[in-house]
Nucleic acid binder design. Structure first.
Lengths: 225, 225
DNA sequence: CGACTCCTTGACAGCGTTCAACAGTAGTGG
DNA sequence: CCACTACTGTTGAACGCTGTCAAGGAGTCG
């Protein structure tokens, strides 16, 4: 919808490699840097000053939960470009899986060449798309590494926040929808709701079961890993 | 990296609502359409001719596996804009969860107003970003609804394809990395590898365990739901 | 009122995790 | 070059979280 044409994932392997070189020109790449196996290329939350292209080797990008559970978002292989962010900071940590040679390009040179031409209107469309991407990335962590209770707590907090922290919220979706969103069964979701009710972090109408009040948002946040 | 500024998810609720109206002007919206509870707004694979904004109600977007397992990607609430695609077709099905009023905007009018101004260079950056999004969406389905064996088969096929279907491939990552990518433990991944080896869909070097050959790609694809 | 949907709860099963043992490989330093 | 250690991968056994199956109640709608 947003853009004119794109390659279908998995059909014709997209020449992402050339795209970036094309875009920025060889001269803006610093000479290749070598990262030994296990080395961090950049950390989650760090300022995103560069975009990277893999010459040889491989890179993993991942998020961590506080207790160390790790969710790898993607593997990057020779030719792949990674570290393209829509904000000022990286949303992942990136590490070399094996000895890896990377070419870097300054964020600023990308801006000069391409992004400054983007109009305000376009930026709005893009921000819609990047919102989707951030949401998807967080959901990957949830689905890959969180327990059923953590997922339900996260869901409640997400809805609460999107509705502007109302005193009471009425969920439009049923338990099966929530389950299919969280990668669970409706019974597991129901049990998690009951548990949170019993722990007095949550209160819900016994007849409709859709109208609810968050009694302890801090507690729920603690529940959500 | 790509764009100048974005709002942080969950901090200041982003005024996505106004953005689209802003962008396209009220007049390009057709009058509101009402979708009864359970109605499909658009189907996966359908041509993406419109973008939607919710006036009242709620919408779910989801993907299905062949046997009916469903993964809901996102819920959309009043003010939310959805159906923004980077290709010609929708990658999800969208359904009204409750009686829902939607405003629609033609894809073409968005293009006229904003997207045609995007330069070729910018399009390349954008295609990098949208590649990420598609990958993330597929990964959500995998993590939410696939079994361990389906996940491992999907992983093998992904690597095979990205490496251009080589006769033999050497994985740079260890079993733990694969596990953390697929939302499993390394033991489960190892067992799935052994199973696929025993079924003669796969062959791997008994010493390094990294060098492998896909013997039956069709069979693996069948394994991958 | 009857059929249907939705939610909860209980009992049990099973998939994937956890814990553990073992073996082969790679890297290190004497 | 060889011990020594760390790392990696496989496999087995037992556990447990979540799924499956089932029953029942309460709300909704024609």
């Amino acid at each position: 919808m947003l853009f004119a044409r794109t390659d279908i994932e998995g059909e014709s392997p997209p020449p992402a490699a050339e795209q970036l070189e094309d875009l920025a020109g060889r001269e803006v790449f610093s000479s290749e840097t070598t990262y030994p196996k296990g080395t961090e290329v950049f950390g989650e939350g760090e300022e995103a000053n560069f975009v990277y292209r893999i010459a040889t080797g491989a890179v993993r990008t991942y998020k961590l939960l506080s207790d160390g559970r790790r969710q790898i978002n993607a593997f990057h292989l020779p030719g792949d470009v990674f570290g393209v962010e829509d904000g000022m900071t990286h949303r992942f940590t990136a590490e070399a899986i094996v000895k890896t040679r990377l070419r870097m390009i300054r964020r600023s040179s990308l801006f000069d060449k391409a992004t400054t031409r983007i109009t305000a209107d376009t930026n709005k469309l893009i921000s819609l798309a990047s919102r989707n991407l951030r949401h998807a990335e967080n959901h990957i962590l949830l689905l890959g590494r969180k327990t059923s209770r953590e997922r339900v707590a996260a869901f409640l907090l997400e809805m609460d926040q999107r509705l502007g922290h109302p005193h009471e919220m009425i969920l439009p979706m049923n338990r099966r929808d929530i389950a299919d969103y969280l990668g669970l069964t409706l019974e597991t979701v129901s049990r998690a709701f009951s548990l949170l009710r019993d722990k007095e972090m949550l209160q819900f109408d016994e007849s409709t079961h859709r109208q609810l009040r968050l009694l302890d948002r801090k507690g729920l946040a603690r529940f959500d890993a």
